[in-house]
């Protein structure tokens, strides 16, 4: 595919933001500033940034727990995101939902369920709404390779296919569900793509460490969906760089293999391409790192200075 320089820089910027955000989460968690658990998305950024580069105004999104940066990509301010992550009143749910639930409906985000796969069907519902109103947008739903084995995923795929709903199912196949390797949990080598055929859906497998490769695969499938042909499945192969949660020492996998995969760095690949083609220079790249880091630091300072909700507010948001 031919790309404009502008497109490549924008794609790189979104990929980089995912990387830096996920890195910042790890660092902030290490400082003890985040309650609960985080699931670092380092290693999987290209799956999200590449797929979402196909998004259009009016599309709907169901994110996973693996790349919280997506919320910011879709419009949620860093202040709101870090406030929710740090359990402050200024978060989208006032700190009632937390890191996995950074979501705002005004950016067409459908929310997330920590009961994995129970939210997969939401994209079908949003797609029903699009179909109902004759709007030709689509809905994206992200999930992991482990989650690919849950029943709701299969029911949602079948329903979307039967009703020809405009849904892109995107599997972030980082090869593990906590400690369980994908080969232990799935009877087929590609837990999402191989199963698409049984629902009569097209699918594609992308190199999840190469954001352009993901984009190209996603573009083909989303064009197909936008043309009114019903749902499709995209599976991105990558590797979870860190443990399932922070503190997971990953005794279940070979450190050498991890290191090999970390060489397949999606951000470094894009930087090399942009530098080789002289689309941007190193100083510009350095500046992009610095600028986003400053923005995140300001947002974290904002969140830290924000009050938490009080016990009097505990019932708020429960009933309309």
């Amino acid at each position: 595919m031919e790309y404009s320089n502008e497109f490549l820089v924008k794609l790189y910027e979104e990929l980089l933001h995912c990387r830096l955000f996920e890195k910042k989460l790890v660092d902030t968690y290490a400082l003890g500033k985040i309650p609960g658990h985080i699931h670092s998305g380092l290693g999987g950024e290209a799956c999200y940034a590449g797929t979402l580069a196909t998004r259009q105004q009016g599309d709907y999104f169901k994110n996973s727990h693996r790349c919280i940066a997506v919320a910011n990509l879709l419009g949620v301010s860093l202040e709101t995101a870090f406030s929710e992550i740090m359990a402050k009143r200024t978060g989208n749910a006032g700190g009632r939902g937390g890191v996995n639930h950074v979501s705002q409906l005004k950016y067409n985000m459908l929310g997330f369920s920590a009961t994995l796969a129970c939210d997969i069907g939401l994209a079908g519902g949003a797609a029903m709404r699009l179909q109902y109103d004759g709007i030709d947008n689509i809905a994206y739903t992200f999930y992991g390779d482990g989650t690919a084995n849950r029943g709701p995923v299969h029911e949602a795929m079948n329903l979307a296919a039967v009703w020809k709903l405009p849904v892109l199912f995107v599997c972030d196949n980082n090869q593990f569900g906590i400690s369980t390797h994908v080969s232990q949990g799935s009877s087929v080598p590609n837990p999402a793509a191989d199963r698409a055929a049984s629902y009569g859906m097209p699918s594609a497998i992308a190199d999840g460490t190469d954001v352009l490769n993901v984009y190209e695969a996603a573009k083909k499938l989303t064009d197909h969906i936008r043309a009114g042909n019903g749902p499709a499945v995209l599976e991105c192969k990558n590797y979870r760089w860190r443990g399932h949660f922070e503190g997971d020492q990953t005794p279940y996998r070979d450190k050498k293999v991890t290191e090999e995969w970390m060489q397949k760095d999606s951000v470094a690949k894009m930087e090399k391409l942009l530098l080789d083609k002289k689309i941007i220079d190193q100083a510009t790249i350095d500046n992009m790192y610095q600028q986003f880091d400053d923005e995140m630091e300001r947002a974290i300072a904002f969140a830290e200075a924000s009050p938490a909700i009080t016990p009097e507010e505990i019932y708020e948001y429960l009933y309309v």
Binding site: N108, G121, L122, G124, G125, A126, R129, A156, N158
Partner: peptide
């Protein structure tokens, strides 16, 4: 279809988005 998880999930997605 006999897919309670999917159509209840879809009902939720539809309700969130304006139906």
């Amino acid at each position: 279809p006999i897919s309670e998880m999917a159509f209840i999930g879809a009902a939720m997605g539809a309700a969130e988005t304006g139906l």
